[in-house]
Design a protein around this nucleic acid. Structure first.
Length: 409
RNA sequence: GUGGCCGUAGCUCAGUUGGUUAGAGCGCCAGGUUGUGGCCCUGGAGGUCGGGGGUUCGAGUCCCCUCGGUCACCCCA
């Protein structure tokens, strides 16, 4: 093997990719049921979009971006997340009012890979733009929660916090800074550096957990509007029976959030990088990007992590028919039969090599098909031998009845 | 960017104090059953022992460097 996939990028092939397919399909259907249309945005964007939108001082922008210069000298960056792109598109298209959309695709961050963390990773997410109501927050949280349920993940809990509005945050920031400055001696070098630039970031430092534990909480410094909003979100989650815990230290790594922030954790997923998804409200973002004030709330789910937490599914996924060519002279007819079955809406396949009947049966069994149809001598009489692979039951049926015979299994 | 552990067949791994043609299981292909799978038996294909350098009569094995994987820190999906 000479060339490998780049560090931090992985291949997913069958049969493992079956879980991906199930999850992506579940998300697609869920988004549609909740009224989210599809958003397609570029995988690369002007670097400026992220430095302005996500925040210059965030980990993502300060050291995790895949940035390159194109042939015309423009600075472009492989997207580290999708929210900024979706909001950019909304503004660029001159939209106003409500827009609900869903996305799915790869994101890129230059980091050391470990369990649950890749340089290229797949996110699905939704954005609810133009709606300030706390019920939008609730709906977005619900979408992520339902996705995890449909993935079969048990014991999911939503961690919930409110960062308040920008004015509350500024007030809180000064209090936090003075608290931390009094204890600067005990802080790590990195936290001391952040103290000056972005004190909120110190809150999610594991290293300084003991100092942080006694720090003032954002929840105690909410303005009236933010406090009312937060109460409404909690109320809404309770009505939807979505289990949540208040997490006062949850601040999340992107600067554009205000008010609601949340994360999903599951007991079945124990890697250090434990969040299966997260999101929040980002009312300031549109203006950061130079647009008119536009409220918004969204979430992003880590597909790689969710797939890793999904339980094994018993039984094979390949249903349908496998056509065995028992008489090489009938190969063309056999392929015609496969095509006809497929056109009729059935999953059908065959072995295009010239392997033995035994080998073809072996392959069919391994793939877990329900029925094998044998094309051989009986074709001359208009018949195909069909075999129920689960029961071993076998009979010769007219060629046109193979599909019906399979569907009856 | 920092640290721990690990690199032998497609996959999971053996490999004796350094010693001759480097092994097993699974997988793949074929045969046993001249048209029948999931079990069994037989055979076959498949290896720059991650790469480079060094020590030695001799290196998969010892030393150095390097690349990669993995887990953790940082931070996040």
């Amino acid at each position: 093997m000479t060339t490998r996939a780049p560090k931090g990028a992985v291949d997913v092939l069958p049969p493992e990719s079956g879980r991906w397919r199930r999850l992506l399909r579940a998300f697609d259907s869920l988004a549609e049921r909740y009224g989210y249309g599809l958003a397609l945005t570029p995988v690369f964007e002007a670097t400026e979009l992220f430095s302005r939108g996500v925040g210059e001082e965030t980990e993502i922008v300060s050291k995790q971006m895949y940035t390159f210069t194109d042939k015309a000298g423009r600075s472009l960056t492989l997207r580290p997340e999708a929210t900024a792109s979706v909001v950019r598109a909304y503004l660029q298209e001159g939209r106003s009012g409500v827009l609900k959309c869903a996305y799915s695709g790869p994101m890129f961050r230059y980091e050391q890979p470990q369990a649950g963390r890749r340089r290229q990773f797949h996110q699905v997410g939704v954005e609810y733009l133009g709606e300030p109501s706390p019920d939008a927050d609730v709906e977005v949280v619900e979408v992520g929660y339902r996705l995890l349920q449909e993935a079969g993940i048990r014991e999911v809990v939503v961690l919930l916090n409110s960062l308040g509005d920008p004015a509350d945050r500024a007030d809180y920031r000064t209090r936090l800074r003075s608290y931390l400055e009094e204890r600067a001696e005990a802080l790590s070098a990195e936290s001391r550096r952040r103290l000056a630039t972005n004190p909120l970031r110190v809150l999610d430092s594991k290293e300084d957990a003991s100092v942080v534990a006694g720090a003032p909480a954002t929840l105690d410094h909410l303005g009236a509007a933010a406090a009312t909003h937060f109460a409404a979100v909690r109320c809404g989650l309770e009505r939807r029976s979505i289990p949540y815990e208040i997490a006062p230290r949850l601040v999340r790594g992107l600067d554009y959030y205000n008010r609601t922030v949340f994360e999903y954790q599951a007991s079945s997923y124990t890697a250090a990088q434990g969040a299966l998804g997260g999101g929040g409200r980002y009312d300031p973002l549109a203006e950061l990007l130079g647009g008119p004030p536009t409220p918004g709330v969204g979430l992003a789910m880590g597909v790689d992590r969710i797939v890793g937490a999904m339980p094994e599914v018993s039984g094979r996924e390949d249903r349908g028919v496998f056509v065995v060519v028992a008489d090489p002279e009938r190969r063309e007819e056999a392929l015609d039969l496969v095509a006809a079955l497929r056109t009729g809406g059935l999953a059908a396949d065959s072995d295009l090599g010239d392997r033995s009947v035994k080998a073809q049966f072996r392959a069919a069994a391994r793939r877990g098909v329900t029925v094998v149809a044998v094309v051989g001598a009986e074709w001359a009489r208009g018949l195909v031998t069909v075999r129920d692979m689960a029961t071993g039951e076998e009979e010769a049926v007219p060629i046109g009845e193979v599909a019906a015979w399979t569907q009856a299994r």
